[in-house]
Structures are given as structure tokens and as C-alpha cells.
């Protein structure tokens, strides 16, 4: 068990190092010279060379890469070409909004996936049409969901605000950075309620695709599990449907949906970029999409690195959890 965890962790570190190599190579393929942008177009060659030397861009490539990795490990993600601030500072400013949105999306996705998976498991008449309907919903691009959401819930019904994170002029600045939590901690329930109203639409738009992907996997593995011999024995013993499902079915069929859930974090991050752009949600996704038109590669690379490390960490944790659930996998 511990050996497995050690192997997985070593693998995760290797993958993160590999990712820095990919990003580093991309940075050198990129047509924009970061030094030129930083010093401005009117700077003399001597000035450019001085800054290049100061930032270490004149070192051999492997030394530059090592500089990049050690920098990233200590929180230095280079300087943004657009905001002219350290990328790490920018990220720190945009991170809480993204964490709040991502957590809510994952919560909604998990609940939806469980309801879908458990509620529709087994062979029944409506299973095939339901499958097609789910496939249709999962085919909608994230930006279409956001547009339809704004049209229906803002323009037609007026229930939810269209953009932003809060409409309160002086939201609490701390301590967690998550407005829903801070509202409660600082004794201002109106902040929490307002933040929730802003959160619902973006979070559902992010959550639908992964929820359906995980729900369908859970449904098919539960359906298979419910047809196995030990379930028939449990039925013959007279156990309730609920007990059979929760104690005999769910645990045995959890591994595949779990790994699916880990992989879906990638689609959550990709949707975050689109959804935050449409809803003007001040998070990392908006930061990435604002950096694209200005070719601000350090900003894109730094954010990608952070999100990818989170992705690798979660999937490593999923691997280890699976081995706990199903000890055969640990061998």
C-alpha cells in the first residue's frame, strides 16, 4: 500500500517535471521575445542585453530550464507581459474566485452524478431514451449553456444576475477569499446569499458535462454489479433494495466512476476558462482568456502549470483511493 503510494507520488513528480519541459519548449517556440516586450520597443540593444542577462535568458537552455523549474517550485512564475506584474501575484489575486467556482461545480457535479447513476441503475424500459437525452445534453458546448442560461434566467425570468461574482459594494476581503464562506464568517449572510446567486449559473454550466460523464459510468458499472451473484444472494436473504445498493453494489462499482471523476477535472478546468470568460468571473480562467489576445505566454504557462499540478495531484489521490477501495489494484 505504502509502496504503491510512493510509486504514484514519484510518478506525479516526474509528470510535473515533464510538463515544465513542455511549457519551456513552447516558450522558446513562441514568437514573442519576453525581454523585448518588458523593456519596450524603444530600448537600445545594450539595454535589451542587460535585461536579458539580468533575467537569465542568455544562459544555456538546460540552465534556463533548471532556473525555470527551481523558480516555479519556490513560487516564481516569471513576469506577465501584459500586466507587468509577477504571474504569481496575478494568480494569487484570481485564484480564490476560481477555487470557489470549481468547488461548487464539483459539488453540483458529484450530487448530479450520484443521482443520475444510482437513480437510473439497472435494466429498465426508460434506460435507452434517457441515455440518448444525456448524450444530447453532454453534446452542448459550455458556451452554449452559458448563453442559454443568461437568456432564460437573467433576461426572461430575471432570477439570476448575468455577470460577476457579487453585487455588494464592499464585500469582505478575507479570511478565506471565498465570498460564500467569508460572508458567514464575518456575520454577513447577505454577502453569502448574493454570492450564491452569482455562483449558481456558472457552476451548473461547468458541472453538467462532467456530471453526465461520471453518472453514465456509474450507471453502467452499477448495472453490471447488480447482476452479479452476491447481489442475488443478498436479494434472496431479503435485504432491502437500499441496503443492497449501498452496501453491496456501490462499493464494488466505485472504482471506474472514481477514475472517470478524476479525469473529468480536466474538462472542469477547460470549461472554467470559457465560463469565466462569459460571466466575467474574476478567476484564473478569465486571466488565461485575457492573456490570449496579447500573447502573454508567461501568464498562460504559469496558470497552466498550476492547474496541471492540481490535476495531477487529484488523479494521484484517486489512484491511491482506488487501491484502498479495491486492494487487488495495489498488488
Amino acid at each position: 500500500m505504502l509502496a504503491l503510494a510512493g510509486r504514484r507520488l514519484a510518478g506525479a513528480v516526474a509528470i510535473c517535471l515533464g510538463l515544465t519541459v513542455v511549457l519551456f519548449v513552447l516558450q522558446h517556440l513562441s514568437a514573442t521575445d519576453p525581454v523585448r516586450v518588458l523593456v519596450g520597443p524603444s530600448a537600445s540593444t545594450a539595454q535589451v542585453d542587460a535585461v536579458r542577462h539580468q533575467l537569465g535568458y542568455d544562459l544555456p537552455l538546460y540552465a534556463q530550464w533548471w532556473h525555470y523549474v527551481t523558480g516555479a517550485a519556490t513560487g516564481d512564475l516569471q513576469t506577465s507581459l501584459r500586466t507587468h506584474r509577477p504571474v504569481a501575484t496575478d494568480i494569487a489575486q484570481f485564484l480564490p474566485a476560481s477555487i470557489e467556482l470549481a468547488l461548487f461545480s464539483c459539488l453540483i457535479a458529484a450530487v448530479l452524478a450520484l443521482v443520475l447513476g444510482i437513480g437510473t441503475a439497472g435494466r429498465w424500459r426508460g434506460a435507452a431514451p434517457l441515455n440518448t437525452v444525456l448524450l444530447a445534453i453532454a453534446s452542448a458546448p459550455a458556451f452554449l449553456l452559458t448563453l442559454l442560461g443568461i437568456m432564460v434566467f437573467y433576461r426572461n425570468l430575471g432570477w439570476l444576475p448575468p455577470t460577476g461574482r457579487t453585487s455588494i459594494a464592499d464585500p469582505p476581503g478575507g479570511p478565506t477569499g471565498l465570498l460564500t464562506v467569508d460572508g458567514l464568517l464575518t456575520g454577513r449572510p447577505d454577502v453569502t446569499l448574493d454570492a450564491l446567486r452569482h455562483l449558481v449559473m456558472p457552476a451548473v454550466c461547468v458541472a453538467l458535462l462532467p456530471a453526465i460523464a461520471v453518472g453514465r459510468t456509474l450507471r453502467s458499472s452499477l448495472t453490471t454489479a447488480l447482476e452479479s451473484d452476491h447481489i442475488r444472494t443478498a436479494k434472496a436473504k431479503g435485504l432491502s433494495r437500499r441496503a443492497i445498493l449501498l452496501h453491496h453494489g456501490l462499493r464494488n462499482s466505485a472504482t471506474t466512476p472514481l477514475s472517470m471523476a478524476g479525469l473529468q477535472l480536466g474538462s472542469v478546468f477547460a470549461s472554467l476558462v470559457v465560463v469565466e470568460t462569459v460571466f466575467a468571473w474574476p478567476g484564473l480562467g478569465l486571466y488565461i482568456s485575457q492573456s490570449i489576445p496579447t500573447s502573454d505566454f508567461p501568464a498562460i504557462a504559469g496558470t497552466t502549470l498550476l492547474l496541471a499540478v492540481a490535476y495531477v495531484a487529484v488523479n494521484t489521490a484517486v489512484d491511491i483511493t482506488q487501491a484502498v477501495l479495491d486492494p487487488r489494484l495495489a498488488r
Partner: peptide
Amino acid sequence: GFLAMPGALVAIAVVAAI
């Protein structure tokens, strides 16, 4: 290594770079 990375994000980075 590639399969363990979030593909869509890496694709964004690749296109943004080139």
C-alpha cells in the same frame, strides 16, 4: 506523461505559444 496532463489546457498553451 501526456495522458496524465489535462489535455485541453495543454492544447491552449500550445496554440497560444505558436
